[in-house]
Amino acid sequence: MTSGDATQDVETPRAKAATRRGRSAYLYTLISLAGLFIVWQLVVSAQWVTEFFLPGPARVFSLMVEMVVDGTLFVHIVVSLGRVIAGFLLAVLVALPLGMLIGLWRPMFHLVDPWIELVRPIPPIAWIPLAIMWLGLGEESKVAIIMYGAFFPIVLNTVSGFRGVERVHIWAALTLGVSRQQIFWHVIMRSALPRVVVGLRLGAGMAFIVLVAAELILADAGLGFLIQDGRYQLKTEQIMVGIVVIGVIGYFINKGLLWLESKWIPYRETLDQNT
């Protein structure tokens, strides 16, 4: 807003040290990942276990390359991501407005909160039989299971975000002559946002975790299907491919969302609330 400030970044010794720390963090990550692969390969090469029980990284990797080349892996990923995104978006569509309503309006809290707390401990897998009976074996039941999983982190964090709006901030805005509508957008929404975004990130993570359970329901494609199919065909390396790909995609989704979060909420690290 103002130009010509005194806090322009200079390469101070401390800034340099921070960059160095950043670089060595990457190095540690690399060493730890490489270490895992080496141990994994050693265990297999030394024939402590047979490759049926635990195929080595080389074998898993070569199957992965094969599946990339013939395009099947891509199809599985797209199908699974489609389900995850659909379930996640549906969860957002319901959980955001509901969470906002609950957080801002006390009667709503007392009305809905008991239900949320009652249903929340029931794991997604427990719903599979009913989901199939009610929604059939098609996409609907799978997406519904994913939506169910993503729903709770989003709604709970949204509620706590809106309940956490501080009275002093509303009062401050009122003494600045700010209108009710402006208070809603610039104070209430802004105040709740960091918590809501945490909810979205956890919700997206949960959608991805629930994916494999959802694809236990009759499926002919998807990463969960890949794992199931590997089990029936006794192709352990196919199971491993499914597991590794889910891990890697989940990792990048989380990283991406964290990055988005830091862009959206640049002051996040300066807040003293946790999570």
Partner: peptide, 24 residues
Amino acid sequence: VVFQEYGIFPWFTVSQNIAFGPRM
């Protein structure tokens, strides 16, 4: 009002806090 517990907005920078009233 200058509040005992500050009451400044943590989601705004110093400039944005100061300019908030006039901006609105």
